[in-house]
């Protein structure tokens, strides 16, 4: 839609101020929630509890949300992150069951997840289907494929006696007393932040997400950007599958989808942290942290377990409301 050329969106000082408020709504919410639970929830502040929040509520979701952040940055969405998690998990478990060395199984797991990304890449970058539809299709197809692979959806257990110790390291190991899942998460967060914010590839992903045709007209390859992005998304998601399986020593078909909606939620909560409302890794991380703390805090404050979900939902809602209400508005109209 071409527009009348007059710009009607000068950004006044008051607007900038309120934009800043919106931007820090997320941090404020995090601090508030933390302080609240520290004062009302017994045991919340204990080191053991905080560690368990990070390991159980935050780490895996953070990785899944980072994956989602790439897709959303590229102007898309990946509804099949759960599928990539599942495929990684399945490949990992199968290879270990088949007696392969754990290291090889890990590589195989990553490859299994990346296959989902490759499929998406062909659909999105090759054929040109919109990411929402493409990954929705992948999700549905992936679900049936898993049913076929598992004889109708039966979980694949690793018999406790036959599990090599190395298998559990990813989920249960520690380095200098820090649980491995947390370390892996931190590494992925840091690396992803750098890739998205500081590399030419990251910049072109963001630009493609904003206005794909400009990227094309700037001599950058849009299909390549999309293909790499969606494969990367699945590859990152595959790590979730590996850690998850290593922790619980079982593969349950289509269980990865549990992460989907929270990953989307965290990514979009995170957008309120950016000046221009863009998806960004630090914001996503804060979003995941917020979700994790609320879930844990509600649990500890003795509220009915089921209120957790209500509380989480309300919180997402209010952060978004504040963040969106203040957002700087550059219309394309």
């Amino acid at each position: 839609m071409a527009a009348s050329a007059q710009s009607t969106h000068a950004v006044g000082p008051s607007r900038k101020l309120s934009g800043t408020i919106g931007r820090y709504a997320l941090v404020a919410a995090l601090v508030l929630v933390f302080a609240l639970f520290a004062s009302i929830a017994p045991g919340f502040l204990s080191g053991a509890n905080l560690l368990s929040v990070l390991v159980n509520n935050v780490a895996l979701l953070a990785i899944a949300a980072v994956a989602m952040t790439f897709a959303v940055s590229a102007g898309g969405i990946d509804l099949s992150v759960g599928t990539a998690i599942d495929f990684a998990s399945f490949a990992f478990v199968s290879l270990v069951l088949a007696g392969q060395p754990v290291l090889l199984a890990i590589v195989g797991g990553l490859a299994g997840g990346a296959m989902v990304g490759l499929f998406n890449a062909i659909l999105i970058a090759g054929i040109g289907i919109s990411p929402f539809l493409a990954t929705l299709g992948t999700l549905f197809v992936g679900r049936s494929v898993q049913q076929l692979l598992t004889n109708g959806g039966n979980p694949v257990y690793l018999p406790p006696n036959s599990v090599p110790d190395a298998f559990r390291v990813l989920g249960h190991g520690t380095i200098a007393d820090i649980p491995l899942p947390i370390l892996v998460t931190l590494v992925i967060l840091a690396a992803s932040w750098i890739v998205l914010a500081r590399t030419a590839f990251g910049r072109s992903v963001i630009a493609a997400g904003m206005q794909a045709s400009v990227v094309r007209y700037s001599g950058l390859s849009l299909p390549r950007i999309n293909a790499v992005t969606y494969i990367l998304v699945s590859l990152i998601a595959a790590v979730v599958g590996l850690i998850l399986t290593s922790t619980v020593t079982v593969y349950i078909p289509s269980s990865g989808n549990a992460f989907l909606l929270n990953a989307i939620g965290a990514t979009f909560i995170g957008t309120t942290f950016d000046r221009h409302g863009r998806p960004n890794i630090p914001g996503t991380a804060l979003g995941v942290l917020l979700l994790g703390i609320v879930a844990n805090g509600l649990l500890l404050s003795g509220l009915n377990f089921y209120w957790q979900q209500v509380g989480t939902g309300l919180l997402i809602f209010s952060v978004l409301a504040i963040g969106f209400g203040q957002r700087e508005n550059v219309t394309r109209a």
């Binding site: 102007g75 919109s130 997400g209 394309r332």
Partner: peptide
């Protein structure tokens, strides 16, 4: 209202 443009068209029929 497009603070960042996410162009996920639902049905791009």
């Amino acid at each position: 209202m497009k603070a960042f443009a996410m162009s996920v068209e639902i049905p791009s029929f």
